[in-house]
Amino acid sequence: MNKILIWRALARGVLLESIRRKDLWVVAILGFIIVCSAGALGFFGMSGLESFAKDLAASVLGGFSTILAIVTTGRLMPEETKNRTLYPLVARPISRFDLLFGKFLGGVAVAWISFLILCALTALALSIFGVKMEPIMLQYVMLKMMGLVVVCAVSLMLSTLMTPSAAVTMSFVILFGSSMLSRGLLMAFSTADPGVAPFYRVINGVLPQVSLFDIGGRAANTNWRLVPLWVIGALATYMVLYSAAMLSLSWAKFRRQAL
């Protein structure tokens, strides 16, 4: 049977449920908050606040979309088990990997759509106040979408190991904490023995490097060059490899799990 059609069916199911459950209403409310915030900034006059407005938009977009991705994906598998909707699914002639991957794609689709809606609302709000959109903004959107794939993969992996609330909490801790831990390692390394570099590299490699996908700092400030193609290629490779590793861990746990 065509695997792509199976994954598409599962992902569409997740998306349809999410839309009907009015998850995207949350996005609309967040978008409204963004527009209102932009209006508040307009009160002070946008002249000179462009960097701040863009920086704020990038931070809010990054934060909200990551939260939405974590909450959506972290609930997918545990809720299937809890609500007993899993049985009719696993009774079908599909492998458990297909099920996981299809759900993962659904989570990514929900995260991407939410992010793009927020982006559109933010762009609208900023353009009303005359903030110029630059090509690097498109790179920001593209890289952020790639980063959301990693976020979804981490969240899905954790959700197969623990309860939904624990998975969501741990996802927040890991995804937001990993960049702080990376910073800590870098600072510690500045005074550490160079021999410990491999050890530091292993710890850093295990952590999800989601912050690498965030070019908000460049997009918000002026005169930064576009991110080179080789970097985008490297990040795409990282996204694929890290997500595959996370999905493999999920599958290792889920494939023999008693339902």
């Binding site: 069916a9 569409r12 199911g13 449920e17 009907r20 007993r84 909707t85 079908r92 002639p93």
Partner: peptide, 18 residues
């Protein structure tokens, strides 16, 4: 239990596709 936010036709379509 079947997905609460899908209707019977969509439910059957999903399972049928699988």
């Amino acid at each position: 239990m079947y997905y609460p936010h899908l209707n019977p036709l969509e439910t059957l379509t999903l399972y049928g596709e699988l």
